[in-house]
C-alpha cells in the first residue's frame, strides 16, 4: 500500500511527473495530483463515462485505469479541448445547440465526441454512428438528441471551414504529439499498450443497445 510510483506522462500537451500509489485511479491522479477537476466521477465503475479521457487518443473511463498504466502515455482531458481562450468548434456547438445542461456528463461526452470526430476525419458521422459512439456516456438531462445534433453540427462546420481549420480544431492530440514528441509517431503502438484488462473494458464502451435484456445479462467484456 505504501509503495509510491513516480509517474511520468503527458497531460494536455504538458509533461507531468507525480508521485502516487501505483493503483490510484487515473481519475483521482488527474483531479487531485494534477488539479484538473474538469473530469468528473459519476459512478466509479465504468458505466457512466463522465470520467472519460483520451489515453493516447483512445477514450477510456479514467475511474478504471490505475495510475501505473498511465506511465508514458498522452492524456487529453476536457481542459485540453479548447485552444487557448477560444472554444473548439465542438465545444461551441454544445453551448449553442443545447448539448450541455447540468454539465456533469459534458466533459466525458465532449472527449468521446472529440475522439469520434478525429476518427471520422473529414466525414460527418451519421446519427446512429454518433449514438453508438456515445453509448458509454450517460446523460440524464438532455434526451441525447441535442448532444447528437451538436456533434454532427461540429463535424459539418469543421468540414465546411476547410482542411486547415479542420486539422486545427479537431485534432489537438496530433498537435500535442507534434509538440512534445514530434519524432515519434506512435499512435498504433500506444493504442496497443493501452489495451490492458481495465482499459479494454473501459474503451470497449459497449453500445448498450435496446431496452432491458442486453444490459441486464452481462455478457463477455463486462
Amino acid at each position: 500500500m505504501s509503495a509510491v510510483l513516480t509517474l511520468d506522462f503527458t497531460v494536455n500537451g504538458k509533461r507531468r511527473r507525480v508521485r502516487v500509489p501505483p493503483m490510484k485511479r487515473l481519475l483521482d491522479v488527474l483531479r487531485e495530483d494534477c488539479g484538473l477537476t474538469g473530469t468528473k466521477e459519476g459512478c466509479g465503475e465504468g458505466e457512466c463515462g463522465a470520467c472519460t479521457v483520451l489515453m493516447d487518443g483512445v477514450p477510456v473511463n479514467s475511474c478504471l485505469v490505475p495510475a501505473v498504466q498511465a506511465a508514458g502515455v498522452k492524456i487529453v482531458t476536457v481542459e485540453g479541448l479548447a485552444k487557448g481562450p477560444a472554444l473548439s468548434v465542438l465545444q461551441r456547438a454544445f453551448v449553442e445547440r443545447g448539448g450541455t445542461q447540468c454539465g456533469s456528463c459534458t466533459p466525458g461526452i465532449l472527449v468521446t465526441a472529440h475522439a469520434l470526430l478525429q476518427r471520422a476525419k473529414g466525414r460527418v458521422p451519421g446519427d446512429a454512428e454518433v449514438r453508438v459512439a456515445l453509448a458509454g456516456n450517460l446523460c440524464r438531462c438532455t434526451g441525447y438528441q441535442m448532444i447528437v445534433n451538436a456533434v454532427r453540427a461540429a463535424a459539418r462546420e469543421t468540414l465546411a471551414s476547410g482542411p486547415g481549420r479542420a486539422a486545427r480544431t479537431a485534432r489537438p492530440v496530433a498537435r500535442e504529439q507534434g509538440k512534445s514528441a514530434r519524432a515519434k509517431s506512435k499512435p498504433v503502438k500506444t493504442k496497443a499498450k493501452a489495451r490492458t484488462t481495465a482499459t479494454v473494458r473501459a474503451q470497449a464502451k459497449p453500445a448498450r443497445a435496446k431496452a432491458g435484456v442486453a444490459r441486464r445479462r452481462p455478457g463477455p467484456g463486462r
Partner: peptide, 10 residues
C-alpha cells in the same frame, strides 16, 4: 449503474 438501467444514446 451496472444494474439500475437508465437510457443510453442508443
Amino acid at each position: 449503474l451496472t444494474n439500475y438501467i437508465i437510457p443510453t444514446a442508443v
